[in-house]
Amino acid sequence: MTTEQTQQDKNGKLVLKLVGVVFGMFGFAYLLVPLYDVFCDITGINGKTSDTAAVYEAVEIDKSRRVTVEFITRTHTGMPWQFEAKTRRVDVYPGELNQVDFFVKNSTAKNYVAQAIPSVSPGTAALYINKTECFCFNHQPLGAGEEALMPMKFYVDPQLPKDIKFFTVQYTLYDVTANAQDVAMNQG
């Protein structure tokens, strides 16, 4: 009787620990999401640029080399806006502040809210593009038939590895009208 009792106690304790591991690992799956973001922020390996504005001060311009930056624009499936970069490609000195304008036009009869998501290739260059101003930091609303020029100011960090002479920044425009309305309603 007593041995059976202690056996049951032992089993119960072990089961409890194992169930703890199971819940811990379920939580770990969700923990991977912020870990992934932090890891990518630090290493820049998924080609995402920072989503906060950089400050441009006391940056030394490296006149010894030029870097070519190319801009690609696309709209995600179901996003009917016209979207293009006014300048497709620029040669810049690292450290020099540049501005590129992006043209958008909503030629439909509906109001839309858009969100642009950047992606840099090669991904390692993403850490070295610093934006002081970007339309991609915020939602961009555009009424029916409206058009706009959206500015983006950036400089290339002079620390950019010497072997990168060319990189591409791609912006994808997503339709976030539904989500934006939810947010507006929640705030209202």
Binding site: L18, V21, V22, F23, G24, M25, F26, F28, A29, Y30, L32, V33
Partner: peptide, 14 residues
């Protein structure tokens, strides 16, 4: 199994 099946559960839940 107890280490990774919960991760699969997390992935399908996401």
């Amino acid at each position: 199994l107890i280490a990774v099946m919960p991760v699969l559960a997390g992935a399908v839940t996401m």
